[in-house]
């Protein structure tokens, strides 16, 4: 089953792969690594509590939120503390819906408005949408093995198949023991590095790995970064599908 919570938690580089890769290859190659990574992070649904601190050259702000994701990848985020407390974000397929307590209507984002910053972070709403079938969107290669912060990693490069992809090149360093991402660098077609995503403090619960800390560094805006720290992560809890409906958003 495809997993999209990773995307919602700003883990753009940690794309959950389709279960099409159910059969592991006998030797270590790119597909084997991705398949193993997908298996290491697979769950049916999840409920996460996290804190996010956004920093730029002018200061920093923080907020906490709860995130819920069902088996279809539908995701609900509720801001529980901070200045934006009460706001909700619902992702249904490629659509993003926003609930503001003082607004009479649910706002559906589309077009260029998806490029707006997501909760003041260095990600846009657009980063949260899109088809998760990365096998169709990217071609990938295994570049070799490298040591990163004392961790032995497989280094992989993903190249977009379409020009419409925001990140044309993604380099990923994957822990060769746990098969979880450690570092992702997102770049443009010209090779300009745009963002670094650093994963650490992995939670290991019932055979599922989940990053306890995630840092996004904006390489274009100097001094701008977002750090998300997970305070609680529960998997396969049997969430009600009604939770992920527009009608329920205003309640």
């Amino acid at each position: 089953m495809m997993k999209r919570l990773a995307a919602f938690l700003l883990m753009i580089g940690m794309f959950p792969m389709s279960s099409l890769f159910a059969v592991a290859a006998p030797s270590i190659d790119a597909r084997y690594i991705i398949d193993a990574m997908d298996a290491a992070m697979e769950y049916d649904d999840a409920a996460i509590e996290a804190k996010m601190v956004n920093t730029d050259r002018l200061g920093s702000t923080s907020l906490t939120f709860d995130t819920f994701q069902n088996g279809s990848g539908d995701t609900l985020l509720v801001v529980t503390a901070g200045p934006d407390k009460g706001q909700k974000i619902l992702r249904l397929d490629d659509d993003i819906y926003l609930y503001y307590p003082d607004a009479d209507e649910i706002v559906r984002l589309s077009g260029s408005s998806l490029k707006n910053s997501f909760l003041g972070s260095d990600f846009s709403y657009e980063d949260l949408t899109g088809d998760d079938d990365y096998d169709e969107r990217y071609s990938y290669t295994l570049d070799g093995e490298e040591m990163l912060d004392g961790i032995s990693c497989y280094k992989m490069t993903f190249t977009a198949k379409k020009l419409s992809e925001t990140y044309q090149v993604q380099e990923m360093w994957i822990d060769s023991e746990r098969f979880v991402p450690i570092h992702v660098r997102l770049s443009s077609k010209s090779g300009r590095s745009l963002k670094d995503i650093l994963y650490s403090d992995y939670i290991h619960d019932g055979g599922i790995f989940f990053p306890g800390r995630l840092e996004v560094v904006n390489l274009v805006k100097k001094g701008s970064s977002s750090v998300m720290t997970v305070s609680s992560a529960r998997f396969n809890v049997g969430l009600d599908d009604d939770l992920f409906s527009k009608e329920e958003l205003a309640w």
């Binding site: 200045p83 934006d84 003082d102 607004a103 707006n116």
Partner: peptide, 11 residues
């Protein structure tokens, strides 16, 4: 946009 770097909406 808000002064706390987030966004807000109201009718």
């Amino acid at each position: 946009k808000t002064s706390t770097s987030g966004s807000n909406g109201a009718s």
